[in-house]
Design a binder for these strands. Structure first.
Length: 287
DNA sequence: GTTACGACCTGCGAGC
DNA sequence: TGCTCGCAGGTCGTAA
């Protein structure tokens, strides 16, 4: 599933292929893909055609193509979204939702999304905390750990003030962005912290360690092109990443823990799954 | 204001 | 072989 490293891989690919090019035609093949563009598909197309992409940016799992009219094409991959750059004569993908061609007649940009949890919208830009321009819908998203303005102290004090479980907190994109279910489990495994540990019981050292490991695991995943379990995550050229081979907890139910040899368990967590080592990541005391 | 939870969506695999 | 059902999970709206 696309989390920060996977979105960053896509951002770099899109930046290389699309920045500086002018959009000639836009086709919306599934209206749900532009549901967040309130004015509708026709307006979406009208606003995009003729615009030049000036840069491609990202915060957490949100990505946006900055346009030459002070707006941005905001793109979220959801759970199964892909942005591909394809030859003009390429066969359309089964789940192709939006397609843009460019005035230079080079490769087209395809937004493909099987489950349609992702989407695109054109938005106005506003100032962020550091005085940079970001799309309106990204305003409430916290800085991610790879952002140059990310402040570890804000995260450490913020998570300890919360009244919830630690995994819920690190999945909260308004506290820290970019972490999803996979890297949450990996960061918790590296930190030897149980997912249900109350945030108010975290020491400053534990919170700092968790942040360090979350940053480390996402940086390592990025260097290997992200985590792929199936064809649902690929880079802009349709290639898979290799980090799934390095995972220590996520998806490793019934396999031995790489640290102590205990068998990794899967547990229900907020309508999804959580993987942990029962020895390294002990259940928190209930009192 | 904060937290928890269901809805959204489609393809795949397991079970019958 | 074909059908049904559960599962995967990021974000948002709503309820508590």
């Amino acid at each position: 599933m696309p989390e920060l490293p996977e979105v960053e891989v896509v951002r770099r690919g899109i930046d290389k292929w699309v920045s500086g090019r002018t959009i000639e035609t836009t086709k919306v093949l599934h209206s749900r893909a532009v549901r967040n563009h309130i004015a509708g598909s026709k307006d979406f197309i009208k606003r995009l055609n003729g615009r030049t992409v000036t840069s491609v940016n990202r915060r957490g799992k949100f990505m946006w193509l900055s346009l030459d009219d002070d707006h941005a094409l905001v793109t979220h991959l959801g759970m199964s979204g892909q942005v591909l750059v394809q030859p003009l004569d390429a066969d359309p993908e089964k789940h192709l939702r939006v397609r843009c061609t460019f005035t230079d007649n080079g490769r087209a940009m395809h937004f493909v999304d099987q489950r349609t949890f992702g989407g695109m919208a054109i938005e106005e830009m506003v100032d962020d905390v550091a005085g940079r321009l970001i799309p309106e819908s990204v305003q409430h998203i916290a800085l991610d750990p790879l952002d140059e303005y990310f402040d570890p102290e804000t995260f450490i004090s913020g998570i300890r003030k919360k009244n919830t479980q630690v995994k819920r907190a690190i999945l909260d994109q308004t506290l820290i962005s970019g972490i999803g279910n996979i890297y949450a489990d990996e960061a918790l495994w590296r930190s030897k912290i149980h997912w249900a540990t109350p945030t108010q019981r975290l020491t400053r050292t534990q919170a700092a360690t968790l942040l360090k490991h979350a940053t480390e695991v996402m940086t390592q995943a990025l260097s290997q092109g992200g985590t792929s379990f199936d064809a649902l995550y690929v880079n802009v050229n349709g290639e898979s990443g290799y980090f799934s081979q390095e995972l220590n907890a996520y998806g490793r139910e019934d396999e031995p823990c790489d640290r102590c040899g205990s068998i990794i368990v899967r547990e229900a967590f907020a309508n999804r799954s959580s993987f942990r080592c029962p020895r390294c990541q002990r259940k928190p005391r209930t009192n």
